[in-house]
């Protein structure tokens, strides 16, 4: 039987938009059905339904990360308000009066430490929370998450601030959008940790292969 070509866009979506590892078996099954007479419309329906199921599963598996990132990032405006005391303002003004290049380096470093302090506190809190819920907490994965979150925070924060300036956002939009960079950075940091559950699942899927086959012999 000659292979029938799958609709290009649907095949691309199946290849690139399904989260997690590629499911070659599913891709092959869909092509096999297509070759045996199913329509292109059927193929597209199957791809959409698989995408929806895969993303639902992905979000459910990472609900701990999503919940924490949402809750923690919503506290960002409170953190900023707490930090902006008179003492902090005086310290920031003091750094701006230093000689070049310290007049630029020190205020930026001070501002970054405020942002990073909030993110790192959140990441450490998440690690403590996860250790109580996940039996095999992967410290290395968490370490990489820590680095990823840190690297993502500054660009996303700068992009948000610039966008607010360009769009001349009002005070409340600026306050609400200030949560966004922390949400993104926190999610980047904690996504892998909560995904460890998936890795263990995959391990177990492969571990069962050598077990003696008893399905046909056991009477139901």
């Amino acid at each position: 039987m000659s292979p029938k070509r799958a609709p290009r866009l649907a095949a691309w979506m199946l290849d690139h938009l399904v989260p997690g590892d590629r499911n070659e078996a599913l891709e092959g099954d869909l092509l096999e059905e297509l070759s045996s007479g199913r329509s292109s419309g059927w193929y597209r329906r199957q791809v959409f339904s698989n995408l929806a199921a895969a993303w639902r599963r992905e979000l459910t598996d990472h609900r701990r990360a999503l919940l924490f990132a949402t809750a923690w990032s919503m506290l960002a405006p409170v953190w900023m308000a707490l930090v902006h005391t008179r003492g902090f303002g005086a310290m920031a003004a003091g750094t701006r009066r230093l000689e070049w290049p310290w007049s630029v380096v020190c205020p930026v470093a001070l501002w970054m430490s405020v942002l990073m302090g909030f993110l790192w506190t959140g990441l450490l809190l998440f690690s403590w929370w996860s250790r109580s819920g996940i039996t095999h907490f992967a410290t290395r994965t968490f370490g990489w998450g820590f680095v990823r979150g840190t690297l993502f925070l500054m660009p996303v924060w700068l992009a948000t601030v610039l966008l607010n300036l360009v769009l001349q956002a009002n005070f409340w939009v600026a306050v609400i959008s200030s949560c966004f960079p922390f949400f993104v950075a926190m999610l980047c940091g904690v996504w892998g940790v909560s995904g460890n559950v998936d890795v263990r699942r995959a391990d177990r899927l492969m571990m069962g292969v050598d077990e003696p086959d008893s399905a046909r012999d056991t009477e139901l």
């Binding site: 029938k4 099954d29 092509l31 077990e211 086959d213 056991t218």
Partner: peptide
């Protein structure tokens, strides 16, 4: 259930089948 990878055929675009079986716990 447990699984093993099987053969691939041209109509499957060279992609292997994944065969499943029920484990003792499953039964």
């Amino acid at each position: 259930v447990a699984s093993r990878m099987g053969e691939s055929t041209p109509e499957r675009g060279g992609k292997a089948r994944r065969y499943f079986r029920v484990t003792k716990v499953g039964l």
